[in-house]
Amino acid sequence: MPTQRHLLLCFDAFGTLFTPKRPIPQQYGDVARSLGLSGFTDDQVHSSFRAAFKAEAKKNPTFGKANGMDPTTWWTNIIHNTFHPLTNPDNNNNNTSLPPDLAPKLLHRFASEEGYNLAPGTIPLLQTLRAIPPAPIDKLAIGIITNSDDRVPGILTSLGLRVSPLVYSGDNSSTVPNPEEEYDIDFTVLSYDVGHEKPDRRIFDAAEELLISLPIAQGTEAGEWQKVYVGDEYGKDVVGAGAAGWGAVLLGEDAAEIHDDVLRISEGHGGDLLEVLHAGQAVSVKDFTVLAQSLGLPTSQSEP
Rank of each mutant, 00 (worst) to 15 (best):
T299S: 02
G170I: 07
A111D: 11
V239I: 15
K59H: 08
P153H: 02
S47R: 15
E257Q: 15
V285H: 01
D184E: 08
Q281I: 14
L126Q: 03
Q127G: 03
D149C: 01
S97Q: 11
V262C: 02
V249W: 00
T72A: 12
N88G: 12
P61R: 08
H84N: 14
G160P: 11
S169E: 13
L86N: 01
D232T: 11
F204M: 11
H84Q: 13
I155L: 02
P25I: 01
K54Y: 08
Y192V: 06
D186V: 05
A292C: 11
T122I: 06
A66N: 10
I142M: 01
P100E: 14
G219S: 12
G268Y: 02
G280A: 13
L214V: 13
D12K: 07
S148P: 00
S97N: 11
S300L: 10
E113A: 15
Q301L: 13
N67L: 13
K65F: 12
T76S: 15
G36L: 05
D101A: 15
A57I: 05
E257M: 11
A141R: 00
S213N: 10
T73F: 00
V152M: 00
S213W: 00
W75P: 02
L214M: 15
V228Q: 01
P304G: 04
T128G: 02
V31G: 04
G170M: 05
L295A: 12
Q293P: 06
G29R: 12
I132K: 06
L125G: 06
Q301V: 15
S38V: 08
P104M: 02
P25F: 08
G223L: 08
P165W: 12
P133Y: 02
I258C: 14
M1H: 15
G296M: 03
Q127I: 07
L118G: 01
V152T: 03
W246F: 13
P298V: 09
R50D: 13
L140R: 00
V262L: 01
L102K: 07
E56F: 05
P71T: 06
D287R: 07
A217I: 13
Q218A: 15
P165V: 12
G154D: 03
T122L: 06
L17W: 08
S173L: 09
Q127L: 08
D171Y: 06
Q27N: 07
R202C: 10
D200A: 14
A51D: 14
N92R: 14
E114H: 14
A141T: 03
T73L: 04
G245H: 10
N91T: 11
T299N: 07
P61G: 10
L106H: 06
L102D: 04
P100H: 10
H46P: 05
R22L: 11
V283F: 04
L159M: 12
D171R: 10
T220C: 09
P179D: 09
I212A: 09
S112L: 07
F288W: 10
L98E: 07
D254R: 13
Q293N: 05
G231T: 04
T62G: 00
T299H: 09
S34T: 03
D200S: 14
P153Y: 03
R22P: 00
R264P: 02
S300V: 12
L277G: 14
I123H: 01
G15T: 07
D30P: 03
Q301I: 14
P179M: 09
P165E: 13
R33G: 03
R201K: 15
R109V: 03
A55P: 06
N172I: 03
